[in-house]
C-alpha cells in the first residue's frame, strides 16, 4: 500500500468514525424535535445526557478529516469545496447552529426553555446537516463532479440535486436517527418505559433506512450506472454484507439485545460507507481524480502519517477514558 493509499484509508476511517459517532448525535437532535408522548421531556433529557460529554469529541473527527484531506489531497479538497459549495455551506451552517443550540440548551437549561427557538434550531439543524452531507456524498459517488486541468468544470448544482442524491440525503438522516435511537435504547436500560420509547423509534428508523437504501439501490441501478457498477463490482461483498446485516440489527432491536444492537447498528452505517469507498477505489473523486494522481508530495504524506500516528497514540487512550467514564454500562444515573 502506498503512502497515498494509507492516507486515503485513514481519511475514510475518520469519516466513518464521524458518521458513526457524530451521526448518533445528529440523530439525537432528530429525536429531540420529534419527542412525543407522555415522556417527552424524559426523552429530551436522555438525548442531552447522552450527548453532553461526548459530542464535541465526536465532532472533532470531522475537523480531523478536513485538515487531513487538505494536507494530503489538497487539489481534491479545493475541487470539492468549489463543486459542493452550496450543500457544504448549508451543512456548515447546520453544524454551527446545532452545536451552539445544544450548548445553549445544555448549559442554560433553566435559562432557555425547551420550547425556545434554540430547541427548534437544534432539531432542525440536526436534520438539515446530515441530509446535505448525504447529497454531497451522492454527488461524489455518481461521478457528477468533473475536473479538467485542475479546474472544476461541472456546475454548482450538479450531482447533489438528483433524485438519487435526495434519497441518499434522506438515508443519511434515517441512519443517524437509527443510530441514536438504538444507542439511546441501550443507554436507558434502567428506565424500561423510556427504553420502550426508543425501541419503537429504532424500529421505525430501521425500517425507514432499510426502505430508503433499497430505493437508493434501485435508483442506482436505473439511473446511476457508475454507482451501480461500483457497488456490484469492487464493493459487492460489502454491499451484500450490508444487506445481510440490516435484518440482524433489526432483530437485535426487536429482541432488545444491547450487545447485538451496539455492533450491528454501527456496522450498518460503516458498511454503507465502505461499500461506497471500496467500490470507487482507486478514485477519490470519480471519474477525474484518483488517489495517486492528487496526492500531496511524498514528503508531506510521510510527515502527515507520522504526525497522525503520534497523535493517535495520545488520542486513542484519551478517547477510551472519555467513553469509559461516561458510556460504561449503567453509569451512576446522572
Amino acid at each position: 500500500m502506498s503512502a497515498a493509499d494509507a492516507a486515503a484509508t485513514l481519511l475514510w476511517l475518520s469519516l466513518t468514525a464521524y458518521a458513526v459517532l457524530a451521526g448518533a448525535d445528529f440523530g439525537g437532535g432528530v429525536w429531540d424535535i420529534f419527542a412525543s408522548g407522555p415522556r417527552k421531556q424524559a426523552q429530551r433529557r436522555a438525548v442531552a445526557r447522552a450527548m453532553g460529554p461526548v459530542w464535541e469529541a465526536n465532532h472533532v473527527w470531522l475537523i480531523f478529516m478536513i485538515t487531513g484531506l487538505f494536507t494530503t489531497f489538497p487539489v481534491a479538497f479545493s475541487s470539492l469545496a468549489i463543486a459542493l459549495f452550496i450543500p457544504v455551506t448549508i451543512s456548515l451552517m447546520g453544524i454551527v447552529l446545532r452545536g451552539a443550540a445544544f450548548a445553549f440548551r445544555a448549559h442554560g437549561r433553566e435559562a432557555v426553555g425547551p420550547t425556545s427557538p434554540w430547541g427548534i434550531v437544534f432539531g432542525g439543524s440536526s436534520i438539515v446537516t446530515p441530509f446535505f452531507l448525504g447529497t454531497a456524498a451522492a454527488a461524489v459517488a455518481t461521478g457528477a463532479i468533473r475536473i479538467t486541468d485542475g479546474k472544476v468544470v461541472s456546475g454548482f448544482g450538479d450531482g447533489w440535486t438528483t433524485a438519487f442524491a435526495v434519497v441518499i440525503g434522506l438515508l443519511a438522516v434515517a441512519l443517524c436517527a437509527y443510530l441514536a435511537a438504538a444507542y439511546l435504547m441501550v443507554e436507558t436500560e434502567d428506565d424500561p418505559t423510556l427504553q420502550a420509547d426508543f425501541r419503537s423509534r429504532a424500529l421505525f428508523a430501521s425500517v425507514a433506512s432499510g426502505g430508503l437504501a433499497l430505493v437508493g439501490l434501485w435508483l442506482a441501478y436505473a439511473q446511476e450506472p457508475r454507482v451501480w457498477s461500483d457497488l456490484s463490482g469492487n464493493g459487492l461483498l460489502l454491499t451484500l454484507l450490508a444487506l445481510i446485516n440490516g435484518p440482524i440489527a433489526l432483530w437485535g432491536v426487536w429482541r432488545l439485545r444491547p450487545g447485538v444492537v451496539r455492533v450491528a447498528v454501527a456496522a450498518q452505517m460503516t458498511l454503507v460507507l465502505w461499500a461506497w469507498a471500496v467500490g470507487q477505489w482507486p478514485y477519490l473523486v470519480p471519474p477525474d481524480l484518483t488517489i495517486a494522481a492528487v496526492a500531496a508530495p511524498a514528503s508531506t504524506l510521510r510527515a502527515w502519517l507520522v504526525v497522525t500516528g503520534g497523535g493517535m497514540i495520545l488520542l486513542l487512550p484519551s478517547l477510551a477514558l472519555l467513553f469509559r467514564v461516561f458510556k460504561a454500562r449503567n453509569p451512576a444515573a446522572a
Binding site: 475537523i63 480531523f64 487531513g68 494536507t71 489538497p74 510527515a303 502527515w304 488520542l315
Partner: peptide, 26 residues
C-alpha cells in the same frame, strides 16, 4: 490547493490538539 500540502501539517497537529482539548474538557 497550493498551500495545503505545505502547511496542512500544523493544521493536522492542531486537529489532535482540539481532540485532546475536547475529550478532556468533556
Amino acid at each position: 490547493a497550493f498551500s495545503g500540502s505545505i502547511i496542512g501539517l500544523p493544521f493536522s497537529a492542531e486537529g489532535f490538539a482540539f481532540f485532546l482539548e475536547a475529550i478532556f474538557l468533556g
